[in-house]
Design a protein around this nucleic acid. Structure first.
Lengths: 220, 220
DNA sequence: CCTCTTTCGTTGTAAAAACAACATACTTGT
DNA sequence: ACAAGTATGTTGTTTTTACAACGAAAGAGG
C-alpha cells in the first residue's frame, strides 16, 4: 500500500496533503487494495457500493451494457483517478453501470462514511478532503455534460467531430492520441463500429482529418 | 427574499438547517434575487459563473443549442432545485450550456466562494452546507448518467422506452405525467420530433403504451 | 366568439445508420 | 516464426431517421 503513496499524492482527492497526512487518512478510511486482471469486473450494475475507489495502476472503463450486448462506455479511468464518488452519499441507490478493468489494474478502496464523519485521530484535513472530493465530482459532472454534448449530435460525423474537437482542445494539440480503439470509440459514442470506420474514411477523403490507429490530426 | 425562506428550507442545499441559520447564511453568501420572463436566458453558454443558483419559483431548462438550431435539453430545473454547482469550484471554466426560463421564474444567486471560505460570522453550519452540496452534486451526477443511458440507446423506440421506464419507476406508477411537451421530449432525447411522434404511434399500435398529451401509461 | 399562434400528428422522400459478411492487417503467446 | 485470435477496413442490403410540408386540434388573447 505504501508504495502507492507517491501516486496518491498527485490525485485530486489528496491534493494539498503531505505524505504523513495521507498515511493517516488511509488508516482512517480503512484503505484496502485489490488487483484485477484484464477484462475482470470491479463492479456489476446493481451492486451497492459505499466505498470511494482510486485507481492505483491500470485502466478501467465505466460502462453500461444492455441485454443485446451493446456497450456504452460512460467514462475511462486512468491511474490516480477516482470513481464511485457519486455513490458515496447515503441513499445513493445501486450502481447503474459496470466497472471493468481493460488492463491489469490495482484499485484502492476507501470507506466513504469515514470521510464525512470526523475521525478519532483528529484529522484536521478532513474538510480539505471533502472539498477536494467536491471539486473532483464537479469536474466529473462537467465531463458528463461534455459527453452528453457529443451524444446529442444527430449524425455519426457530428459526434466524431464533437469528440475529436474536444479531445484536441483538451490536449491542446491538433495531433493527439485518443484512449480508445475503434470498437471502444464506437461504444463511447454509441454508434456502429463499421459505420463509424466508414465515416472516418469519408471525413479523411473530405480533408477534415487524418489518422492512423488511435492518433488523429484535425486539419485546419 | 425572506418570503422564500420556506422554500429554501426544503432545498437540498439547506437541508437540516433552521430558518435563522438560513437567514444568516443568505447574508454570508450575499444572496441576490432576480426574476425572468418566459423564454428569457438566465445564462448564455460561454459565460463565467461563480455563483450557485437556486430556483425559487418557475421552471428552467439547461440546454445545449447548436449552430443549426437544434436544442438538447440536458436537464429541467424545478423550484427548490439548484443549478450551477458544477461551476462553483475554481478553474471550472466557462459554462457549457444555456439556461433558459420556460416559465416566469425567480432565481436566487449565492456567492460560491463564500461557501468554501469560513465566514466572519462564525457559521458553524458551513460544513453541513458543503456536505449537502456534495450530496446534491452526486445526485445530479447520477441523473446525468441515467440520461446518458437513454441517449446511448440506438433507436428512437429504445430511447423512449428507456426514458419512459425510468420515469415510471421514478414516479412509482405505470401512469404518469412527463414534464415535457413533444418538442421538448424530442430535444431531451435528441431525436426528430415528427419521427418521434410517429414512433410513439407505432408503439401504441404495438400495445406497448398509451398516452394522451403528456400523460403516459406503460402496458404490462 | 373569433383569430392568431402553438402544438401535435401524418405522410412521403432522401439521407444516414445498423447490420451482416468478409478480407486484411496487426497482436500475442508459444 | 507460426498459429490463433483480435482489430480494422470495406462493401452491399435493410432498416431507421431526418427533413419538409401540411392539416387538425388545442390554447391564448382580444
Amino acid at each position: 500500500m505504501d508504495s502507492f503513496i507517491p501516486v496518491l499524492k498527485h490525485t485530486q482527492l489528496f491534493r494539498g496533503l503531505g505524505e504523513g497526512e495521507i498515511l493517516a487518512l488511509l488508516k482512517c478510511l480503512d484503505a484496502k487494495l485489490r488487483s484485477y486482471g484484464k477484462g475482470e469486473y470491479i463492479f456489476h450494475k446493481g451492486q451497492f457500493v459505499r466505498d470511494i475507489m482510486v485507481l492505483a495502476e491500470g485502466k478501467l472503463h465505466i460502462q453500461k451494457d444492455d441485454y443485446w450486448g451493446n456497450s456504452n462506455i460512460i467514462q475511462t479511468i486512468a491511474p490516480g483517478e477516482m470513481f464511485g464518488e457519486a455513490y458515496a452519499a447515503p441513499n445513493s441507490g445501486a450502481m447503474l453501470n459496470n466497472v471493468i478493468a481493460v488492463e491489469e489494474s490495482t484499485v484502492i478502496f476507501l470507506d466513504a462514511k469515514g470521510i464525512f464523519t470526523t475521525c478519532s485521530s483528529a484529522c484536521a484535513f478532513h474538510s480539505l478532503v471533502v472539498q477536494n472530493l467536491f471539486f473532483a465530482l464537479s469536474e466529473k459532472n462537467r465531463r458528463l455534460v461534455q459527453k452528453l454534448g457529443h451524444m446529442s449530435q444527430r449524425s455519426t460525423r457530428e459526434k466524431l467531430m464533437s469528440y475529436l474537437s474536444e479531445e484536441s482542445s483538451r490536449q491542446n494539440a491538433s495531433t493527439f492520441v485518443i484512449p480508445f480503439n475503434r470498437q471502444q470509440l464506437a461504444d463511447f459514442l454509441s454508434v456502429d463500429r463499421s459505420a463509424m470506420s466508414n465515416e472516418l474514411r469519408k471525413m479523411r477523403e473530405d480533408g477534415l482529418i487524418t489518422y492512423e490507429k488511435s492518433r488523429f490530426t484535425l486539419i485546419l
